[in-house]
């Protein structure tokens, strides 16, 4: 207080000595020591909800906790607590002042939101358009799960497509010569004709059935039903010892 009084006196003396032309022209209140005294932190309009914390450790802990949730206005993606910027340090000091007066985290957050908007909060409140931030990840997860399920369902259909075409899929390439007679005898006896789609597929696979497109293979002009579609290693091993043969 003595220092403040001295400062105000010095200021007065200088103001009286000065009387220069560049003196400020705004309405200036004469200094009163009572006015100079509250240069420190101003309390908020509402009273603190809590009693002031008693220990410095408690004040520091609350200050860190609250300022971690506040966004540093001059940095990108840093909290007030983490930022070394001057502006953020001032804000942290303000938080500390308010904490030491007994204001709660909610009151302090409200104080900053009133001045900076919800922008100042690193975790925006779940309301209005902000719900997008909270719901979008769940939505993306659901869409992803749906896509995976859908792709998995389609897999038996799609894989044989890769083997389609005369260059990749020819009887000589995939059907060992020693099995050809077996296949033909089975087809001739009708023992493979237990399901329509499969039998037609087999004929194409053998390259014996011509198609309008000139293609051979199970999907040349005939789409095997999902249940009988062969894929992956089953198809390579087909027809002897493969899945179809085991049936």
């Amino acid at each position: 207080m003595k220092l403040l009084l001295l400062m105000s006196w010095c200021g007065l003396a200088r103001a009286q000595d000065g009387a220069d032309a560049s003196a400020p022209t705004a309405a200036v209140t004469e200094p009163a020591t009572a006015d100079l005294a509250p240069a420190g932190p101003a309390p908020l309009a509402e009273p603190p909800a809590n009693a002031p914390p008693t220990s410095d450790d408690e004040i520091d802990r609350l200050t860190d906790e609250i300022s971690t949730g506040l966004r540093c206005p001059v940095c990108q993606g840093l909290s007030v607590n983490d930022s070394p910027a001057e502006g953020a340090r001032s804000m942290k000091a303000r938080v500390r002042d308010l904490v030491s007066m007994g204001y709660t985290g909610q009151q302090i957050n409200d104080y900053f939101v009133e001045r900076y908007g919800t922008w100042i909060l690193l975790a925006p409140p779940a309301e209005g358009a902000n719900w997008t931030v909270y719901l979008a990840p769940i939505g993306f997860l659901l869409v992803g799960a749906f896509f995976v399920a859908w792709a998995g369902r389609r897999r038996p259909h799609r894989t044989p497509m890769m083997w389609r075409g005369p260059t990749q899929y020819t009887p000589t390439q995939y059907i060992p010569t020693q099995h050809t007679a077996t296949i033909w005898s089975r087809i001739a006896s009708g023992s493979w004709r237990n399901s329509g789609c499969e039998t037609m597929g087999r004929w194409h696979e053998l390259g014996r059935l011509g198609t309008a497109t000139g293609r051979t293979g199970p999907r040349a002009d005939h789409r095997p039903c999902r249940r009988h579609a062969l894929h992956g290693r089953d198809q390579r091993r087909w027809p002897v010892g493969g899945r179809a043969d085991a049936r």
Binding site: W9, T29, P31
Partner: peptide
């Protein structure tokens, strides 16, 4: 209510 840079004078918004 802030003190001027020159010191010794306090300007308050209320007074303006």
């Amino acid at each position: 209510a802030l003190e001027t840079a020159e010191g010794g004078q306090v300007i308050s918004l209320k007074d303006l």
